[in-house]
């Protein structure tokens, strides 16, 4: 019992802490490390997207919008301020077109500036 007290006392813990590197990051000056699989910004592989709208149907927050004029002419828009970054679109897409990158989307007071047109397909384009 005495040995345990010696090993686990709070004084030892703080001495240990002084001689180790701090855990916090002075964000935005320091570097933020995100793991590889972090669910960040929504990205799309335009070649695979056919404009089927499966992701739009399953999106829980309505962050995706499909403006479809015809099979060949459609526009897929993403509203990051509404997005919950839940990866449901990734699961719903049968062609593996939509997914997450590990880029952090920061908070903003101008959410309109974040809106991304993921795919804008015009008539006759590939």
């Amino acid at each position: 019992m005495k040995a345990m007290r010696k090993r686990h006392s709070l004084l030892d813990a703080i001495i240990d802490a002084v001689f180790s590197r701090p855990d916090t990051v002075a964000y935005p000056f320091g570097e933020l490390q995100l793991p590889e699989g972090y669910r960040g910004a929504i990205v799309i592989n335009p070649e695979n997207c056919t404009g089927c709208g499966l992701c739009v149907r399953d999106c829980p927050t309505g962050a995706l919008k499909l403006e479809k004029k015809s099979r060949d002419e459609f526009k897929l828009i993403h509203y990051p301020a509404r997005c919950a970054y839940c990866s449901q679109c990734e699961s719903s897409c049968v062609r593996g077109a939509i997914g997450h990158s590990n880029a952090l989307v920061g908070a903003t007071d101008r959410p309109r500036e974040l809106i991304v047109v993921l795919k804008d397909k015009k008539e006759g384009e590939d």
Binding site: I14, S20, P22, T24
Partner: peptide, 9 residues
């Protein structure tokens, strides 16, 4: 205090 608590301070 920050260094005791593993922070930058």
């Amino acid at each position: 205090l920050a260094r005791f608590q593993r922070r930058i301070g």
